[in-house]
Write a protein that binds this DNA or RNA. Structure first.
Lengths: 233, 233
DNA sequence: TAGATTGTTAATCGATTAACAATC
DNA sequence: TAGATTGTTAATCGATTAACAATC
């Protein structure tokens, strides 16, 4: 459908790489905070918790920002990654659902410093409309359209119960939101062209539980094997 | 290192599959709540937001729990997946760091119903030790060892600021915790055999920002192309 | 020039998907 | 038996990694 222009030189960054760029950005910020001016791919990879070959391959999709024999200039690389991700500008964000999690998200200090600005907190419950959270007054969910258009909001965060998530997503999309971060434990469906990412506490815990169980089974097996020592080959 | 026993028939479930099993579990629970007794792979795939070939492949790693020509028994499959993940039992969990996010996590109702039980809330700040959150009193961080051993805690949740995360992780590992869910915006390193999963709000938002920016660029390009209509081939 | 480190190649590994034989 | 749907095969696609030539 979308014709690829030939002027841009095949700028397709793999999804796995895109997901790691923010990690590199954070690691570079930590290095800069420690007054480190230059780092090797090995240094940065260690700080980011990945292997250095992967890091260099990832960076190679952005361009050639290092110096052979020397390494990377921390500030320069940081700026290039920030620009590539798009967080040199400020993205207006709305949060819908100001329960416990919504409160925590609204108060999250990492927003502002990382290229995002919470322009509105919305909740369907009128009881919450008095409240001021992190300096922002909670407003009715029905104000979504007006706010989204006024601030040109492209990114929405859903922190409602599961039952409301699809409805909120539909309204967001209708209001022009094209990227959604969904904290509700529900699958939401959206039209093509809208991106959804999902964060789910209980799913993360269940993945850990699976591995825990496997470890437990392995231990049990090892012990049985040890007890039956000297058995058949 | 770990010798694979031959009695268990090569029970290696790919990581990508493991990460989807909890999604299937939730979808099956939703179907059961709607009094649906049987479903096809197509039905379940739709409910889980994946394609049906992938779903069937995933389920095939667990065993053969469907009936050709008929589909899957919802309750039976749900039990089999829960057993495979290990959430038919209850996992004791500790949460460290009872700020905004820690509060939200402690109050999260999906815990209990999904195989987890919060046995302790810990915080280093003595000011918080009076507090009772979700019916559980906040206790000193130094109680970690005692609590972890008493309840045989295998899973820990870190909801502290980034600066404390590595220290908390080290203490958890020393206390026998072998799976960590890390909400702090920091890379933590742990010994082999300890699993860490990371949930990071600002990274998720940055990934969305990247795609937003790409959409914006594409629109701009399309408009330029449209304006220059009738140009060279 | 010698030493260091990048950017890239190519091999390997793992995940996705369509298609269909098996079978209820 | 005819229709439906699973479980599996095999082809394809994407991600990881080691190794090293290029080059500062």
């Amino acid at each position: 459908m979308t014709a690829r222009s030939s002027s841009e030189t095949a700028r397709v960054i793999p999804e796995a790489t895109v997901a790691r760029l923010p990690v590199y950005l954070r690691a570079l910020t930590a290095l800069a905070d420690d007054h480190i001016r230059t780092c090797s791919s090995e240094d940065l990879a260690t700080a980011a918790g990945v292997n250095s070959a992967k890091l260099r391959k990832d960076l190679s999709y952005l361009g050639s920002y290092g110096t052979r024999g020397v390494g990377y200039d921390v500030d320069y690389l940081r700026y290039q990654i920030a620009r590539e991700i798009g967080v040199t500008q400020d993205w207006p964000v709305v949060i819908v659902g100001i329960g416990n999690l919504g409160h925590a998200l609204a108060n999250y200090s990492g927003f502002r410093s990382r290229g995002f600005r919470v322009v509105a907190l919305l909740d369907a419950d009128p009881e919450r409309h008095e409240e001021i959270v992190a300096g922002v007054q909670v407003r009715p969910f029905d104000d979504l359209e007006a706010i989204a258009r006024e601030h040109a909001v492209a990114i929405g965060v859903i922190a409602t119960p599961a039952g409301s998530a699809q409805d909120v997503a539909d309204r967001m999309v209708a209001a022009g939101v094209t990227s959604i971060l969904n904290f509700a434990p529900a699958v939401i469906s959206v039209p093509d062209g809208v991106d959804v990412r999902k964060v789910d506490l209980s799913i993360e815990l269940q993945i850990l539980a699976y591995h825990e169980q496997r470890k437990a089974h392995e231990h049990a097996r090892d012990e049985i094997a040890a007890a039956a020592a000297g058995g058949e080959s």
